[in-house]
């Protein structure tokens, strides 16, 4: 990711935008992905990934 970003060029649009991206990352990884792994350990990868596909419904 770092190599890709450095190749394409790093541009920060402002503090608000940077904070929004940081918030998106925190919501996605330590919260969202952690819940996903907990789900996988309890119901298996097949059903967990299906439950995860509901994210498309929430996004419209």
């Amino acid at each position: 990711m770092l190599a890709f970003t450095l190749t394409v060029g790093f541009k920060i649009g402002g503090l608000n935008i940077m904070l929004l991206y940081a918030l998106a990352g925190v919501v996605n990884f330590p919260l969202g992905r952690a819940s996903m792994y907990k789900s996988i350990s309890r119901v298996g990868a097949g059903l967990a990934s299906l439950l995860l596909s509901t994210s498309i419904v929430y996004n419209i």
Binding site: V27, M36, S55
Partner: peptide, 13 residues
């Protein structure tokens, strides 16, 4: 947990 993960990832997007 799977449904919460879907919701949080959608929120992140």
């Amino acid at each position: 947990m799977g449904l919460i993960a879907g919701l949080l990832i959608a929120l992140s997007i």
